[in-house]
């Protein structure tokens, strides 16, 4: 009887020990079968460097064209006067520079033009005085050969815009530079079969 009790006790103890091992403090081993997905955010592409466009070439104030020197600014005068305003001196300095850079110019007429405001006579005289004033500036301060310059007042006779608007009248009040004479180099060229050019004659003629 006693031995039977001992046996049962021993069995119970064994069971407890086994349970302790099986369900007690042994490590849990697990592996997460579902992988953790990480979606990355690709860095934004580097912004393309801004194309820096070359700034447009500023319009030249003074341009040489065929038979004239064009000014893209107006020569300013005192009201009802032939006195050139100081702010136009630099413009006329540029005109003088262009003339001197083009020695083929042998004759240049400074033309004064007026709008239709005021009497014809007054406009004629004022435009002539203004043309003369500009010519004098070019040969004096500008250092242009006086011999190639001439001045002429056209009055209101050759408008380039309508005299019915103020804007038009402003355009009509102007000074123009007309090349009346210049040397032109005529070149006679011979081209061979290979396309090579050979100058066979070159001469200067009055333009």
């Amino acid at each position: 009887m006693q031995s039977a009790v001992k046996l049962r006790t021993a069995g119970l103890i064994s069971s407890l020990v086994l349970a302790s091992v099986a369900f007690g403090c042994g490590p849990r081993v697990f592996s997460d079968g579902d992988a953790l997905a990480i979606l990355g955010s690709a860095p934004a592409p580097e912004p393309e460097p801004e194309k820096v466009e070359a700034p447009p070439e500023p319009q030249k104030r003074v341009e040489m064209r065929d038979n004239k020197i064009v000014i893209n600014e107006k020569v300013q005068f005192e009201v009802n006067s032939a006195k050139i305003k100081p702010e136009s001196h630099s413009l006329l300095d540029e005109v003088a520079k262009v003339i001197k850079e083009n020695p083929q110019i042998k004759g240049l007429e400074v033309g004064g033009h007026a709008s239709s405001e005021g009497s014809d006579d007054k406009n004629q005289k004022l435009s002539a005085r203004r043309a003369k004033s500009v010519s004098k500036y070019l040969s004096g301060t500008g250092g242009v050969d006086k011999g190639i310059l001439s001045a002429k007042g056209y009055g209101e006779g050759t408008p380039i815009a309508s005299n019915d608007t103020e804007d038009g009248r402003i355009q009509n009040r102007r000074v123009e530079f007309l090349i009346t004479e210049q040397d032109v180099t005529q070149t006679k060229v011979e081209v061979d079969d290979a396309g090579n050019e050979k100058v066979i004659e070159e001469k200067k003629v009055k333009g």
Binding site: G24, C25, P27, R28, F30, D32, L36, A37, G40
Partner: peptide, 16 residues
């Protein structure tokens, strides 16, 4: 905490 150690294996999958 748990009364047992946990021996874990985790996987991260990276996709752009």
């Amino acid at each position: 905490p748990d009364r047992r150690d946990g021996d874990a294996t985790f996987t991260w999958v990276f996709k752009g």
